[in-house]
Design a protein around this nucleic acid. Structure first.
Lengths: 346, 346
DNA sequence: TTGAAAGCGGTACCAT
DNA sequence: ATGGTACCGCTTTCAA
């Protein structure tokens, strides 16, 4: 298929080689290739032809250095293995890639110091912007790293001190978990367990939501909060702990999808029947949970949308910087058999 | 906490500013900061102090341009939402990040032309290497893109024409699926359905494995192969099609984890009891599948390891280029209730 | 040991 | 419309 001689010898040729072959100046080549106006049709032809012959491909590194823009953004999350995070990344990537931005992905493993370190590296790589899901909202190193840049930063499901110039895309956990709580209370549950992660916005909102639900029922806040990491292991531990207490809760809300697997292990071991012996509600969808026996009631949200919105906010800032209002996306409660049927208050 | 004056004014200062503040030459700063030998203790001190004061952070773009190495690698996959891919990425990222490499992540959506395009962009960004999971093994554009570089390329679960210089990390699908097939055959199944994706290595190996299993039993190859994408939708379609045929298979092997959800929809709709009315085996683990009622038999593999090995092979090539033998990682069959109990051949 | 200067591969200003 | 050239921020001879 080689028309001429050295077509596609490997993308080694630079703009200089193209200029030589075309017998024109370097500046002209740059103009034509970057689609700037002010080139005669002949010039355009010659350059394009030469570039094609040499199989020229621009060195984006050099271009970025000179233009002071890399057309790349950094994503810092805890763990891409979490389908929640994966979905967010995926959503963000989809809108960024149509805008021709590349994504630098980093996993911090949920370790605050790693968050900070990774943010620093990404900034050194001169990313144009950052989408961050930090493990903590008040880690000094992370905050320092974030303060250390002019590049726009979008946070997902976290709120940072006001002195950090950042943009926010949040989920309305309060609504979904509130509905879940009210559902349980009107089903007669009076002692509800809530498994949560670290003290970040979703955790606070979920607790507040259930507390307010109790208040709305004029019932004492008999809420059992279990804190830890949002892992399957913690899900198991948390359920074990709650269920073996003197006065175990009759319903449990899991504040994270990863908890479900562990929770089910504990439930299985104790041969409890979900929806009968214990009501269970999970926050965030898990692939097969609606096919579980019984199906697992879930507080849903569109996680891909979370990533998309974050990317959109970021792109908008890249266009024209400025302050923005937080974007809040809905969550909703989907009752399923695992949270049982109504039965009169005890 | 600001010791001196302008400490941390934003990472705007370059190596030049450091040199000026320290009252030394630029070259010396570079030497000290990049840890090269041949600097007096005083020089080292002065430079370090100046850098600290200015909150200097290197511009990795400039460094990469000059060094002709970016310390970054590109990952091209179909869809990070697939927990399988997510796990691979995660595994790769974990070993790359300890080697201080950054990862550029791209989703192709399983579209061959997008694969090619994304590979091209990553190469223009001068990634030092590539880990690729292309949708097809013979897409001309993708192959051309891959041929277009000196950078080492590692393929996962794909084999390319011999003229492409690439390295391979593969799964031994033949073993796991073979065991699954033999399990079904000895349980008395004679007509087995196999749902697969496009014509890539895993698909071929799985078909071959079941065929050989039939042969090993001296039984006619009564295999029903259904081809399509590896989506939940296709899983549903495939099962609908197979189950509504005149002579439906009594057992089905799903050649991809995403198929399971769809398959379960079809099974539920028909009120079939898995392990009794129909035996089902899924390739690759799905989070809750072992908690399903009944638990889903699965052909397992360590997907994170797949990513780790790929990264290791890549790093080794970056150290010292050369040809390598394909790395093959095991798969194994885990029988569970969904594939029923033994019952005599019909 | 140290620093001046020549690039890396582009972009963009400025004069022609 | 075109091309020379300074420069982006850093590394790396090379000479002092």
């Amino acid at each position: 298929m080689n028309k001429k001689t050295a077509e596609g010898t490997g993308a080694r040729s630079g703009i200089k080689a193209v200029a030589e072959l075309a017998g024109v100046g370097i500046a002209s080549v740059s103009r034509v290739l970057s689609g700037q106006p002010g080139s005669s049709p002949q010039m355009t032809q010659r350059v394009l032809e030469a570039a094609r012959q040499l199989g020229y491909a621009p060195n984006l590194l050099a271009q970025s250095l000179r233009r002071r823009a890399t057309h790349s953004i950094g994503f810092v999350g805890s763990d891409i293995n979490n389908p929640l995070i994966a979905s967010i990344v995926s959503g963000a990537e989809s809108v960024l890639s149509v805008a021709r931005y590349s994504v630098l992905l980093t996993n911090s493993g949920g370790i605050p110091s790693v968050d900070a370190e990774r943010i620093e590296v990404l900034l050194q790589r001169q990313v144009d912007g950052l989408i961050v899901l930090p493990a903590l909202e008040d880690d000094p190193a992370t905050l320092a790293a974030l303060r250390n840049t002019q590049a726009p930063v979008v946070l997902i499901d976290r709120t940072l001190p006001a002195d950090i110039p950042a943009h926010y895309v949040l989920s309305d956990h309060y609504q979904g978990v509130g509905d879940a709580g009210r559902h349980l209370l009107s089903a007669g549950h009076r002692r509800i367990g809530l498994v949560v992660g670290r003290d970040v916005r979703p955790t606070r909102e979920r607790i507040r939501a259930v507390e307010d639900a109790y208040d709305g029922f004029g019932t004492p806040r008999d809420l059992v909060v279990h804190r830890g990491t949002l892992s399957a292991e913690h899900g198991e531990e948390a359920l074990e702990a709650m269920l073996s207490s003197e006065t175990p809760p009759s319903a449990v809300i899991l504040g994270g999808n990863q908890l479900l697997e562990g929770a089910l292990r504990a439930v299985d071991r104790r041969k409890l029947q979900l929806g009968v012996d214990l009501s269970l509600i999970c926050c965030d969808d898990v692939p097969l949970s609606r096919f579980h026996q019984p199906p697992i009631a879930t507080v849903m949200r569109d996680t891909a949308l979370l990533g998309k919105r974050a990317a959109e906010v970021l792109l908008a800032q890249l266009e024209s910087p400025g302050k923005t209002e937080p974007v809040t996306l809905p969550t909703w409660f989907e009752p399923r058999q695992s949270c049982g049927r109504f039965h009169p208050g005890r």
